[in-house]
Amino acid sequence: MAFQCQRDSYVQEFVTTVVSCSPCELSLERASGKKEKVKGFEVILKDTVLFPEGGGQPDDRGTLGGVPVLRVTRRGAEAVHFVASAVEVGSSIQLKVDWDRRFDHMQQHSGQHLITALADSTFGYKTTSWELGRQYSTIELNTAMVKAGEVEALENAVNDKIRAAVPITIELLFLDDPAVQQVRSRGLPDDHSGPIRIVNIEGMDSNMCCGTHVSNLSHLQVQSIVHCCNMVHDTAIRQGRSLSAKFYFLVKVGRDHLSQAINLTYQSCLINLFPLKSNLNLLRDMAVLIAQNFKSDPNRGNLFCLHRKDGDAEFMNIIAKEIGTEDTILFLTVGEERGAGLFLLAGPVDVVDRLGPRVAELLEGKGAGKKGRFQGKTSCMGRRAGVKALLQEHSQNLRL
């Protein structure tokens, strides 16, 4: 049986029927890395949009009737959902997918298929295994060495196909279908039953696979080979789903901790590596990067607040200039966390004219402004929270 998540990997919400619910105990790994025995319930549904772990891809997360699903595994033809509280057998229930996690898995998995296909067709390197990780995927090839020029050529070929927006399609075949013999496969699990799911990258690759995938290579955006190392018999390459994965790999963090890693790396550079002039240049570059990161966020609002201990008036003005103030209010501060420092309020002229003096008052500072900029000094940087609350209140009611 193909689950709804396999028939259409883009479905994020789904209503189905509870087939069974039985108490059980599961060993779960916490964020600390420690395993903990948790009591709960195994729930089997008529169908599901939550992918059960398999084929090198981790299981999905989401909710079942509003209750978090902590694990999804496959048992024969069934997907087993582990939840902390019981649900009524026979009832209709809504599933919701943790979409950020799912889409990340879709991009990485389809990216692995693409890299695997091109490594084979271009250099004759077969994939012997792969693993989808939180930060990047690891693909093992049956060669003792991949030359530097080959890595670059492979990455370029991968991104050429992404730019060409090659479609990815799914088909179901039975084992006795002659077409099955033409597809790439590492074999079927012993408990497999029913039709075989084939993932096709048009004109390039056909592969037996149970995982979730994008419908078009353009949805991968950019793929990057971030690392390559020799093993005893095989070579492992690490695949990132975007160019920013190169930075994730260098700083050894995931996306959730990227901002903190940038800050720590930057502080280290300031202290240990760069003379004063280089420090200033780096600070300006950081201002541009911060602004671009905000502008590229599809979920950004119309209020941007930032505080940095190190920085100056130019640092704040660069950010304001790069972001633009026609439809965004910016509140930027530099200086001691609870001591003295500088502040900048920027945004639409009428907003800044009205709120600038109030911001200075809340910070117990002094300032002046014109043309959508109000700058000043304060000795009470610890009062920033009050300013943020004021600006959040106004930004929700403004038509910027």
Rank of each mutant, 00 (worst) to 15 (best):
D327L: 01
L330N: 05
D234W: 03
L283W: 00
D312I: 03
V226E: 07
S259N: 14
R308F: 07
N317A: 09
C228M: 12
C305M: 08
D285C: 05
T212Q: 07
L330V: 07
G324Y: 07
Y248S: 08
K295C: 12
V288Y: 01
P275D: 15
L332I: 06
I237M: 07
R300W: 02
L250E: 14
V232F: 09
Q239W: 03
S218M: 09
R284C: 05
I225R: 03
K246D: 12
C229M: 10
G211P: 03
N299F: 11
A313K: 10
L330K: 04
D297C: 15
F249T: 09
K295N: 11
L330Q: 10
L303F: 08
L303G: 11
S242F: 08
D285H: 03
Y266H: 10
K246L: 15
N317G: 08
K295L: 15
L243W: 09
H213L: 08
T333Y: 02
N279I: 10
S242R: 13
M286Y: 04
N216E: 13
R284K: 11
R308D: 04
Q223I: 07
L220C: 07
I329V: 14
G211W: 05
T212A: 06
K295W: 00
D310I: 11
V222D: 12
R241H: 10
Q223Y: 03
F304L: 11
F315Y: 11
V214S: 05
D310V: 11
A320T: 06
A291T: 06
Y266M: 06
L282A: 07
K295E: 10
S296K: 12
